[in-house]
Simulated scan of single mutants.
Amino acid sequence: MQWTDKKQSKALDWTKRFHIINGISRGLLYLHQDSRLRIIHRDLKPSNILLDEEMNPKISDFGMARSFGGNETEANTKRVVGTYGYMSPEYAIDGLFSIKSDVFSFGVLVLEIVSGKRNRGFHHPGHQLNLVGHAWKLFKEGRALELVDDLIVETCNQNEVMRSIHIGLLCVQHSPGERPSMSTVVLMLGGEGTLAQPNEPGFYTERKLIDASSSSSKQESCSVNEVTVTLIDGR
C-alpha cells in the first residue's frame, strides 16, 4: 500500500509516522553508503514509498535511479527527471545531482509526513509559499508546532515532532553542501543532541515566481500529479 492513500494517512498516528520517517532514512542510507554501488534514486516522492502490513516503508521505482562506483558522488545531466516539489534546486535548474539531491527529497517527505500536507499545491491564506517555505517561516517565528497535522498534534511526542521538523529543514537547505548526509540524518533522528540551525531552504520564494520560471525552462521535467514526465533536450 502507499502511505499517500487518504484513508491510510488518517490512521497513521505519530508513532507510525515516525517509524516511516526512520525507515525511509535507513533505506536511503543503504542506497547511498551500504550497497555495493552508490545509488541515487532521483525520484523520491510519496507514491514511491510503499508500506507493508507492519507499516515498514520500502523505497520503490528505481527507473530513474543512477548508480556510481568508486569515489563518484555527483554527476551532471541535461536530462532532468523527477517530480516538482521534490527535486532539489541544483538538480531542477542545473541538472546537477548527488546524494544530497535525495537528501533534499527526503526532507520534503519528512515535512509532508509531519504536516499531513503536500509540498506542491499547498495553500495558505497568509502567503503564497509552498509547504517547505511555510515550515521555514513557522520555524523562524518559533511556531513550528503549528505545522503538525491536526490529527496527531494532541497525541504526538512533541520533542520527536519538533526534532523531525528541524531535521527536515536541515535536509532542504538551498546549498547541497549544507545538507547532512543520510548517515548523519539517521544519527540525528535517533539521538537527542543539539542540532545545527538550518539556513534558508531551496525554492523559498513566492509560488508565482516559481511557476513563472519553471514554465520557461526547457530542461526540467514536470509532474503535477506524481506521474513522472521527462523532457529531453536534443543534442
Score class of each variant (00 low, 15 high):
residue 208 K to S: 14
residue 17 R to S: 07
residue 121 G to C: 09
residue 180 P to I: 13
residue 41 H to M: 08
residue 31 L to P: 06
residue 211 D to R: 09
residue 102 D to A: 06
residue 95 G to S: 10
residue 2 Q to M: 00
residue 196 A to R: 12
residue 42 R to D: 05
residue 186 V to C: 14
residue 169 L to W: 06
residue 28 L to G: 05
residue 235 R to M: 09
residue 152 I to E: 11
residue 153 V to D: 00
residue 214 S to V: 14
residue 93 I to C: 10
residue 188 M to S: 10
residue 211 D to I: 14
residue 30 Y to N: 07
residue 97 F to Q: 09
residue 227 V to F: 12
residue 7 K to W: 07
residue 101 S to R: 03
residue 84 Y to S: 01
residue 166 H to R: 07
residue 169 L to D: 09
residue 55 M to Q: 02
residue 181 S to T: 15
residue 78 K to M: 11
residue 35 S to A: 15
residue 129 L to I: 10
residue 59 I to R: 01
residue 227 V to E: 13
residue 224 V to N: 06
residue 102 D to K: 04
residue 225 N to Y: 12
residue 177 G to L: 12
residue 11 A to E: 15
residue 118 R to A: 06
residue 226 E to K: 08
residue 92 A to L: 15
residue 25 S to M: 05
residue 133 G to Q: 02
residue 140 K to T: 11
residue 176 P to Q: 08
residue 29 L to D: 13
residue 78 K to N: 14
residue 232 I to K: 11
residue 103 V to H: 04
residue 133 G to S: 04
residue 175 S to Q: 14
residue 228 T to E: 10
residue 28 L to W: 09
residue 34 D to Q: 12
residue 185 V to K: 06
residue 74 E to Y: 12
residue 130 N to E: 11
residue 141 E to Q: 15
residue 223 S to I: 01
residue 130 N to Y: 04
residue 21 I to S: 03
residue 121 G to F: 10
residue 32 H to C: 07
residue 120 R to V: 00
residue 85 G to W: 01
residue 27 G to T: 05
residue 132 V to K: 08
residue 21 I to P: 05
residue 182 M to Y: 01
residue 49 I to W: 00
residue 12 L to G: 05
residue 210 I to N: 01
residue 16 K to H: 12
residue 155 T to V: 14
residue 26 R to I: 03
residue 192 E to R: 13
residue 83 T to Q: 03
residue 21 I to Q: 05
residue 106 F to A: 00
residue 70 G to M: 11
residue 139 F to I: 05
residue 99 I to L: 13
residue 108 V to R: 00
residue 178 E to V: 00
residue 30 Y to S: 07
residue 137 K to F: 04
residue 150 D to R: 14
residue 230 T to A: 13
residue 57 P to H: 02
residue 15 T to E: 15
residue 205 T to R: 14
residue 189 L to F: 10
residue 110 V to G: 02
residue 30 Y to D: 01
residue 117 K to G: 02
residue 8 Q to G: 08
residue 139 F to E: 09
residue 221 S to G: 15
residue 209 L to A: 14
residue 147 L to D: 02
residue 65 A to W: 04
residue 202 G to F: 07
residue 163 R to W: 09
residue 62 F to M: 14
residue 11 A to M: 14
residue 192 E to M: 09
residue 170 L to V: 11
residue 225 N to Q: 13
residue 152 I to D: 09
residue 86 Y to E: 01
residue 88 S to K: 00
residue 145 L to Q: 14
residue 202 G to N: 07
residue 115 S to K: 10
residue 50 L to K: 07
residue 188 M to V: 08
residue 24 I to F: 00
residue 128 Q to H: 13
residue 73 T to L: 11
residue 4 T to W: 01
residue 24 I to R: 05
residue 207 R to T: 10
residue 16 K to V: 13
residue 68 F to Y: 13
residue 60 S to R: 02
residue 131 L to N: 00
residue 203 F to N: 05
residue 64 M to P: 01
residue 180 P to H: 04
residue 62 F to G: 02
residue 229 V to I: 09
residue 173 Q to F: 12
residue 103 V to N: 03
residue 17 R to N: 08
